[in-house]
Simulated scan of single mutants.
Amino acid sequence: MKLDNKSLLLYLVTDRSWLGDHSLASQVEESLINGVTFLQLREKKLDNESFLKLAIEMKELAHCYNVPFVINDNLDIAIKSDSDGVHIGQDDISIEEARRIIGKDKILGVSVGTVEEAILAEKLGADYLGVGAMFSTNTKENTRDISFDTLKNICESVKIPVVGIGGINNENILSLEGSGINGVAVISAILAQKDISKSTRELKDICENIFI
């Protein structure tokens, strides 16, 4: 599945911390039905067999709704599951090596925090950039908050699409209007909510109003 700018409007990153009595598949499908446009599977603690099984399940689910699906960090699982691509951070495998492994036709997303990192990532083959953390978040440790001006400068410095990530919710998302991003990546703003359907629809409406 190919990437276009609209695919990144409302980007969901998975996290099983808020499953409760639900399955990840049921939560993800609820979000896909209600407007999520891109899906990333992020797992740090699963064994490879379980990770691969989950990746295949998530890919099939995403494709039912014509939504691109990528794996966070793990290129081996990305290849074995035939995901649409992979998303890597600055401390993961190099961009050049990731591109070589997944091939030219797969989606490669890269996390960046500076204009210099953004320009280099685009030059080395990234298809889109994730910029953050925009706001303080408990989901990921050792993150640095990115200013609005830095976000805007990054968007103006590259031609590939950019998504903001990190602590974004329906209360602070409006502050990103005018930055030049193509959308936002969220976790708890959808998955930690009691009503995933409502939360997804509300975020999607806001995104459509300020990013398209």
Results as ranks from 00 to 15, higher is better:
Leu12Ser: 05
Leu12Arg: 00
Thr14Val: 06
Asp15Val: 05
Arg16Glu: 15
Trp18Met: 10
Leu24Glu: 14
Ala25Glu: 15
Gln27Gly: 07
Gln27Met: 15
Glu29Gly: 04
Ser31Tyr: 04
Ile33Trp: 06
Asn34Gly: 12
Asn34Ile: 07
Gly35Asn: 07
Phe38Gly: 00
Leu46Asn: 10
Leu46Gln: 11
Asp47Asn: 15
Asp47Phe: 09
Asp47Lys: 07
Asn48Ile: 12
Ala55Cys: 09
Lys59Val: 03
Glu60Met: 10
Leu61Arg: 03
His63Asn: 07
Cys64Lys: 14
Asn66Pro: 01
Val67Phe: 07
Val70Ala: 09
Val70Gly: 06
Asn72Cys: 12
Leu75Tyr: 09
Asp76Ser: 14
Ile79Gly: 08
Ser83Ala: 15
Gly85Ile: 00
Gly85Pro: 00
Val86Thr: 02
Ile88Ala: 06
Gln90Glu: 14
Gln90Val: 06
Asp91Val: 08
Ser94Glu: 11
Ala98Cys: 14
Arg99Ile: 09
Ile102Glu: 03
Gly103Thr: 03
Lys104Ser: 14
Lys104Asn: 14
Asp105Val: 03
Gly109Phe: 07
Val110Tyr: 02
Ile119Thr: 10
Ala121Asn: 05
Gly125Glu: 10
Gly125Cys: 11
Gly125Pro: 04
Tyr128Met: 07
Met134His: 03
Phe135Gly: 04
Thr137Trp: 09
Lys140Ser: 13
Lys140Pro: 05
Glu141Ala: 15
Ile146Gln: 00
Ser147Leu: 06
Asp149Cys: 06
Leu151Arg: 00
Lys152Leu: 04
Lys152Pro: 01
Asn153Leu: 12
Cys155Pro: 01
Val158Phe: 07
Lys159Arg: 13
Ile160Leu: 14
Val162His: 01
Asn170Asp: 15
Leu174Trp: 10
Leu176Val: 02
Ile181Met: 05
Ile181Trp: 02
Gly183Ala: 08
Ala185Trp: 03
Val186His: 07
Val186Glu: 09
Ile187Leu: 09
Ile187Gly: 04
Ser188Asn: 10
Ser188Cys: 08
Ala189Trp: 04
Ile190Val: 15
Leu191His: 05
Leu191Val: 04
Leu191Arg: 02
Ala192Leu: 07
Ala192Val: 06
Asp195Ser: 11
Lys198Trp: 11
Ser199Cys: 09
Glu202Asn: 13
Asp205Met: 13
Ile206Gly: 11
Ile206Ala: 13
Ile206His: 10
Ile206Met: 13
Cys207Glu: 03
Glu208Leu: 11
Phe211Gly: 00
Phe211Gln: 00
Ile212Gln: 12
Ile212Thr: 12
